[in-house]
Computed example of a mutant assay.
Amino acid sequence: MIDSLQVNYLEHNEFDGLHDDGCEIKVTCTPTPGQLAWADGIVAFHSVRVDNALLAQASRCRALVKATTGVDDVDMAALRAKGIRFANVGQVGVEEVAEHSLALVLLAQRRLLEYFRHTQMGGWCWRECNTQAPGELLKSCHETVLGVLGYGAIGQAVARRAAVFGYQVKFHDPAFANCPNGVAQACSFEAVLAQADILTLHLPLTPTTYHLFNECNLARLKPGAVLVNTSRGGLIDTDSLLSALDSGQLRQALLDVVEHEPAIPSALRAHARVALTPHAAFCSQRSLSTLKARALKTLLTMLEKAPSVTDQEWWPQNQEGEAHV
């Protein structure tokens, strides 16, 4: 089990050692060539790249599980070339990511970031907190259009919660011509960008969505909009984002994920209209426990299956989705 160097998903000695079922597990953040060559199966957590360099050393490996929903850091061609069965964990932490996303939406809705900083600097006047339009009053949730880009499990969970608050929820997802849960209005990509006061992203990172929010598409956003991202950092081009914030095209960016994290550009980290959380949206006691247990169970099941099981029976689940881990 290759744990993340960024954050330890596994507690000390949580799985390490010989288990009752005869399975011996070694846990490491920095696998040695000997450990990789020894393993019949591998569980790789977030930020562990599954590429040719790793697989070349895993001479015995018959199955690999990525303990994430996203598979953007997995070389599928290399896995196929070596005949290694692969699976990811599917949707984990859907409710948690939806709650975190809505918390960021409400932070922007109520200008909490501005209020926090204003009072920290000794102020006590709410009229001074909107630097873009001094004295302009807040809009209620009922007057606010919430755009949801990507309407998989998390996008739908966000929309359900937002509808309770009274948001006018509009979404875009090519997979849905109409809203499957009746709480949002389906729109074109361009319409969602143009109408959303707050836009929340729930997309996988693919060659198509990489830097989807570049200079061109950020310019399509409603002036003064807020951008929320709890999906993948690579959806947003950081330089274009900073330019849009500096010009006032964007009022705020509230990000749980950043490209090349944890190497966060200092200009982004220090920006007065940026709030960052450390890729934590999926996290809860329940989701973390589910993630680890499901990853290990999936791997052991794959290793126990007869050789007649085809690769197609073990391939990424829920790639259309947007889950966070």
Rank of each mutant, 00 (worst) to 15 (best):
S4L: 11
A225T: 12
A98M: 08
D237M: 00
L300W: 04
G234F: 03
A175I: 10
I154E: 04
R273P: 05
E143G: 09
T209E: 00
A44W: 11
V97Y: 00
R62G: 08
Y210A: 14
R62F: 00
D21A: 04
H142Q: 13
L205P: 10
G122I: 08
N8D: 12
L212Y: 00
T208S: 08
A37R: 12
C141L: 12
P174C: 08
S308C: 13
I84A: 06
A133Q: 15
D16G: 02
H100C: 07
H211Y: 01
A53L: 07
A196L: 06
L107C: 15
D72H: 13
D16M: 07
G17V: 07
A108G: 14
V74T: 13
K292C: 09
R220V: 03
L137H: 15
A186T: 09
R80M: 09
V105T: 06
T301P: 00
Y9H: 13
A63M: 01
A293E: 12
N217M: 07
S231L: 01
T277C: 00
M1S: 11
K305M: 13
L205T: 06
M302P: 01
I198V: 08
A295F: 05
L113T: 10
G123V: 12
A103F: 03
Q252E: 15
S188I: 08
D197P: 02
N88W: 10
Q168D: 15
L113W: 06
E95S: 15
A98H: 02
H172S: 11
R127E: 15
T277S: 08
G248F: 03
V148C: 07
D40A: 09
A58M: 03
Q35F: 05
G123E: 02
L55Q: 09
L10C: 05
K292N: 09
H19Q: 09
A163S: 13
A272S: 14
S47H: 15
Q6D: 13
H46R: 14
D16Y: 07
A67L: 08
H324M: 12
A56M: 11
C125Y: 10
A253N: 02
T298V: 13
A280S: 11
L300H: 06
A78F: 09
G90Y: 06
F282I: 01
S47C: 13
D20W: 03
C61Y: 10
V183M: 04
P174R: 06
P262R: 04
A272L: 10
G155E: 04
K305S: 14
T28N: 00
P223E: 02
I42T: 05
E24S: 14
N8V: 06
V169K: 02
H279D: 04
A153C: 12
L146M: 09
L221T: 00
F213W: 05
L193R: 09
L221A: 00
A177D: 14
V257I: 02
A306W: 01
C125W: 10
T277W: 01
Q109P: 11
L212P: 04
E11Y: 11
L276S: 02
E14L: 05
A194P: 04
A87S: 15
P223W: 05
A196M: 04
K139R: 15
A78E: 13
R110D: 02
V226A: 05
D21E: 01
T200G: 03
I25H: 05
T310I: 11
A53Y: 06
S4I: 06
K82S: 11
H100E: 07
K139C: 12
K170M: 15
A175E: 10
V105K: 07
P180R: 05
Y9S: 04
L303G: 02
S140K: 14
I25N: 01
